[in-house]
Amino acid sequence: MKIGIGSDHNAFEMKCELLAYIEAKGFEVKDYGCFSPDEVDYPDIAFHVANGVINKEINRGILCCGTGIGMAMAANKVPGIRAAQVHDTYSAERAQLSNNAQVITMGSKVIGIEVAKKIVEEYLSVEFEGGNSGRKIDQIMEKEAEYSK
Rank of each mutant, 00 (worst) to 15 (best):
R135P: 06
Q139I: 10
N59C: 14
S133T: 12
E39H: 00
V103Q: 01
N59R: 10
F27D: 12
I81Y: 02
I81R: 02
G80R: 10
L63Y: 01
F128E: 11
I104E: 00
E144L: 10
P43H: 06
V110Y: 03
M14S: 03
I3P: 12
S148R: 15
I137R: 14
G61R: 01
T105C: 15
G107S: 11
I62C: 03
D44A: 14
Q139E: 15
V29M: 09
V110G: 05
A92L: 05
N99D: 13
F128M: 11
D138A: 11
N76E: 06
E129Y: 07
Y21D: 04
E114R: 10
Q96H: 04
R94L: 14
H48N: 15
N132D: 11
R82M: 08
E129L: 14
K117E: 05
M106T: 00
S7R: 00
D88G: 12
S148V: 08
F35E: 09
P43G: 08
I104A: 01
Y90W: 15
A92C: 09
E13C: 09
V49P: 00
G80F: 12
L18V: 04
G26A: 07
K118N: 13
A145D: 08
Y90T: 13
M14L: 14
V49A: 06
I5K: 11
A84L: 03
C64T: 01
I69N: 06
P37L: 10
P43Y: 04
Q85G: 08
Q96T: 04
R60Y: 14
D88Q: 13
A46V: 07
V120E: 05
P37R: 13
G61K: 02
V115W: 06
S125E: 05
Y123M: 03
D88I: 12
V40R: 00
A116M: 07
F27I: 09
E144C: 08
G131K: 13
N76M: 08
V29K: 09
